[in-house]
């Protein structure tokens, strides 16, 4: 980046990684031509996925990928918050704890012992939690991974000072707009689309697969009604619990529903 080109006026952007797979950062890299356009308008001061150069803060916008899953992360996020005027979190890990939050229902020691050859080298918290559980977050962008178009719209919105254009409707709206035949109605596949926030473009149902809830619970929804209907149509409760307790299983609405399904299941199993 040439220091003589508008050195002072560009907003400064930092991208951070916590416990995650890097997929959301890759979405930003995959934005290709538009990323170059973005680099013209903002100073990308820290983005380790793209460059090992790190310019010190403070930053105007901090983009955080990943969940808090170690004691060190728990401390680090506090400094990140102090360094960034706007803090936005991206992806299922950062906004709901991610797939690794499945451990929140288990015993960390058992997982560590069964997975790692030298458990003593692992220093992890018992839970994986979203960033907003630890510091105030200005905007959460959902998805596993996030949609590059939404991510760039979010950054553009911050630059232009307008509200980001992120839909709150269900995935069904996207299926209907692209003309996809409903897999739940026409094939009897239990699908989370009706209770999941749109944003992905309804990719999975277009390929005869159910929605896995990658964008988390829709704004106004009714999980109990949907799972009750699926169960009446013959889907075993255990499968429904697993479906809801997936990518975004620790998001409050999904968490409550999988807990309800599980507790009702154990109650039913009693003699």
């Amino acid at each position: 980046m040439h220091a003589e080109k508008r050195p002072q006026s560009k907003p400064r952007l930092a991208v951070y990684k916590f416990a995650s797979c890097d997929g959301c950062q890759l979405q930003l890299l995959d934005a290709c031509g538009r990323l170059l356009e973005l680099a013209e308008r903002v100073e990308i001061a820290q983005f380790l996925e793209a460059s090992s150069r790190v310019d010190p803060g403070p930053y105007d916008v901090g983009i955080v990928e990943g969940s808090i899953s170690t004691a060190e992360d728990r401390e680090r996020i506090q400094q990140v918050r102090r360094d960034c005027r706007f803090l936005v979190t991206i992806g299922a890990c950062a906004t709901s704890g991610g797939i690794q939050a499945l451990r929140n229902w288990g015993q960390i020691d058992e997982f560590v012992a069964s997975v790692y050859a030298s458990p003593a080298t692992i220093d992890a918290l018992a839970t994986s939690t979203p960033i907003a559980d630890h510091v105030p977050v200005d905007f959460e962008l959902r998805g596993c991974p996030v949609d590059p178009g939404q991510l760039l719209d979010l950054i553009t919105s911050l630059l232009l000072g307008r509200r980001p254009r992120v839909p709150s409707e269900s995935v069904c709206a996207e299926c209907k707009r692209r003309g996809t035949v409903c897999v739940a109605v026409a094939q009897g596949i239990p699908c989370l689309g009706p209770v999941t926030q749109a944003g992905c473009g309804a990719i999975c149902p277009a390929h005869d697969r159910e929605c896995f809830g990658c964008y988390g619970p829709a704004e106004a929804t009714n999980l109990v009604s949907l799972t009750t209907f699926y169960e009446k149509r013959g889907t075993p409760r255990e499968r429904l619990t697993k479906l809801v307790r997936g990518i975004n299983g620790y998001a409050p609405a999904f968490r409550e529903e999988s807990d309800r399904l599980e507790s009702a299941d154990s109650m039913r199993a009693r003699p």
Binding site: E37, L159, S170, A173, G193, A220, T221
Partner: peptide, 29 residues
């Protein structure tokens, strides 16, 4: 207690006509 607010009924309805209009800008605006 049963409705999901999922929008399916309105989008398959042959007469429902609601739409939303947005101005989609490039990064330069």
């Amino acid at each position: 207690t049963r409705c999901l607010s999922c929008t399916n009924c309105t989008l398959v309805c042959p007469t429902c006509f609601c739409s939303s209009v947005s101005e989609v800008a490039d990064l330069s605006g």
